[in-house]
Design a protein around this nucleic acid. Structure first.
Lengths: 160, 160
DNA sequence: CGGTCTGCTATGCAGTCTGCCCAGTGAACA
DNA sequence: TGTTCACTGGGCAGACTGCATAGCAGACCG
């Protein structure tokens, strides 16, 4: 669960140059190949690294508009709403939350006009009482994880 | 910008088995290796595939709590607030939005108690007028892109 | 203190893949 | 009709992977 500096550097390296191989990584990190191999296996086994899936940009696919919708759900309808939203491709992410709304979801659309269609489809379901949407104007900080990895790994020095 | 069925299948394949090579992918897709190579290059050049960065799970790093904070910003302070939030490792994502708040950010923390520390650090900045936070209870639909890829690619058949 | 474990280093080997090249083919297009 | 483009199928040298082995240093424990 705790990762050390070497793990951190390895993840940073993989994030910067994903196409890199184990051998090249070991050279950059100044450790043996087997060590990198073992660390990678461990990180994946522990679930720290879930995988290396392709990072697809919705904008490049023709969906440049992103929005967040807060949904208020009728009591006891949570499961149905979740199943409904899971069938909508434009729903990229869905969380149930505390606070004002009951659910928060991330949407994409082909245009602002198209967003209306998506929202209609999202809220066109019985269990949803109310929805409020915030359109993203600028993605000031794109989804990132490296700073957190650095923080988490800086605690534990690498002792060979 | 438009991707066809083959591109779509390739992305799906890469998402399912990221460790796959070009050669194996070409076998699965039933096309020549050079074709897969060319498609991959094109997808990356067009920015559809940004990269293959490691998918790190914050929970496995010791940050199991996720929250979304809506921030209200003092007029004209947007840039400063953005720079401030970029320095906080626990801020994984930041968007400027329309609607009720002015910014929406995704936070992680080591515990609910630790979330307080994170929020204090986030809002402990002059430009932020008010913040309202929603803690994520369940990630009903984890960040996904495949359904969108399928939708986008199903329009254009593959004509060899 | 000595035994045991774990993690790292270093090395080797066979099999496989990558990057690059080329010639040929079929379809779309001017 | 001629040109262009994408795909096919093949070949080649070099590099990498997965796997296995052996030695070494530090931590832990009775």
């Amino acid at each position: 669960m705790a990762i050390d500096r070497l793990d951190g550097r390895l993840i940073e390296l993989l994030a910067e140059e994903p196409r890199i191989g184990v051998l090249e990584a070991s050279r950059r990190l100044g450790v043996a190949r087997g060590t990198v191999q073992a660390r990678l296996d461990r990180l994946q086994a522990q679930g720290v690294i879930r995988g290396f899936g392709p990072d697809v940009d919705p904008a490049a696919l023709g969906y440049p508009v992103t929005a967040f919708a807060t949904l208020e759900i009728k009591q006891g309808q949570g499961g149905d709403v979740r199943a409904h939203l899971a069938t909508v491709p434009e729903v990229l992410e869905l969380h149930t939350t505390t606070g004002r709304g009951d659910m928060l979801c991330r949407l994409v659309a082909r245009s602002n006009a198209d967003l209306q269609r998506v929202i209609d489809r999202v809220v066109g379901f019985d269990g949803i009482v109310r929805a409020s949407t915030a359109i993203v104007m600028e993605n000031a900080v794109p989804l990132r994880i490296i700073p957190l990895v650095q923080q988490a790994s800086s605690q534990t020095p690498y002792r060979p």
